[in-house]
């Protein structure tokens, strides 16, 4: 469990004179559920894009699954899974076609695709929906399916960008059950969220404000550190402090 899955050192990304990610340093252990918390525009998505190999940092260094984010982006992409709230599955393909497509991208054999696809569907309890167009699935099912598809190739790390935005409370919890199971299998989970109660489910988390990391610890320790009883209040204190200094 002590192996490092993600390591970032003074990672910085600038757009012209705007510093989206400001010298963040942290590491994520293998099998850990690591939360990246912050309001919209705090820099979460930019940081995640760098770690996924989609965007080059301006300065600093980082490795993902042991690969360098400057030079080895292709290797990074082969070892990660990615899911975002905005885009995940093709609405105009059926459930099984989506699975086949994504598994195919990662080079799974036909037999593997068939086996894993079927077990995935039965695990989600939607085997009878294999030939349904994704567009007609309820939002909650879509999200769960999208997550399962994102880890179908058993990646070392899965990145989840605001995966549960707007999902109903029941589905959100079922979704987290899936995340726990993936972590149990040794998959490192890197998740961004602005739901503070969700932050509590993470093993460790950082709070990102104005591109900087202001705190990094377990939810329990963070609450102790700020002497409050909920993550909401931790975040409130951090964000207020930042607002006074900035803008």
């Amino acid at each position: 469990m002590s192996e490092i899955a993600i390591k970032a050192d003074k990672l910085t990304k600038k757009f012209d004179d705007f510093v989206a990610v400001d010298a963040i340093t942290f590491d994520v252990k293998q099998g850990e559920i690591f939360g990246f918390v912050g309001a919209n525009g705090a820099g979460k998505t930019t940081a995640m894009r760098i770690l996924c190999g989609l965007s080059k940092p301006t300065s600093g260094s980082a490795t993902v699954a042991g690969f360098d984010v400057y030079k080895e982006t292709e290797k990074i992409k082969r070892n990660i899974g990615y899911m975002s709230q905005k885009f995940s599955l093709y609405d105009d393909l059926t459930v099984m076609e989506n699975i086949t497509f994504y598994a195919g991208i990662y080079g799974l054999s036909d037999k593997e695709i068939k086996d894993r696809g079927e077990s995935l569907l039965s695990q989600l309890g939607i085997s009878h929906e294999a030939k349904t167009f994704v567009a007609s699935l309820p939002l909650g099912w879509k999200q769960k399916l999208a997550f399962s598809v994102a880890v179908i190739h058993e990646p070392k790390i899965v990145f989840l960008d605001e995966p549960t935005g707007g999902v109903d409370p029941v589905t959100r919890r079922q979704f987290w059950d899936l995340i726990y199971e993936a972590a149990d299998r040794g998959i490192t989970v890197f998740v961004t969220t602005h739901y503070m109660d969700e932050a509590e489910y993470c093993n460790r988390l950082t709070v990102m404000v104005d591109g900087k990391i202001d705190a990094l610890d377990t939810p329990t320790n963070l609450k102790k550190q700020f002497s409050v009883d909920s993550m909401d209040k931790v975040f409130y204190q951090l964000a207020r402090a930042a607002k006074r200094s900035g803008d």
């Binding site: 912050g38 309001a39 919209n40 602005h194 503070m196 909401d232 975040f235 409130y236 964000a239 207020r240």
Partner: peptide
């Protein structure tokens, strides 16, 4: 308030 930070 969707997507707005806690302080706001």
């Amino acid at each position: 308030t969707t997507g707005v930070d806690v302080v706001s």
